[in-house]
């Protein structure tokens, strides 16, 4: 009756997990960059924060799903 392992392949999990990682990468690092911009009256922290967040989110996705 009961199996020991979840039988479903990881596709539907991975789809939403990747989406969540990308979104939180942009929100966290982009948010930090935006805050620095507001604080220091500059304009480039937001963009670099977004790029950094996107880069680290892609790195995390590669760590989780890319390397085998």
């Amino acid at each position: 009756m009961s199996s020991n392992e979840p039988k479903r392949p990881s596709e539907d999990n991975a789809f939403w997990t990747i989406f969540g990682y990308m979104l939180s990468g942009l929100l966290i690092w982009g948010g930090i960059g935006w805050g620095l911009d507001q604080w220091l009256n500059t304009g480039f922290f937001l963009l670099s924060g977004l790029l950094l967040g996107m880069g680290s989110a892609l790195y995390l996705v590669w760590l989780r799903f890319g390397r085998k």
């Binding site: 979104l23 966290i28 680290s56 790195y59």
Partner: peptide, 13 residues
């Protein structure tokens, strides 16, 4: 880089 993302994913996103 990674830890804030994981925390934000689990507790916010």
């Amino acid at each position: 880089l990674i830890t804030p993302l994981e925390l934000a994913t689990y507790f916010l996103v």
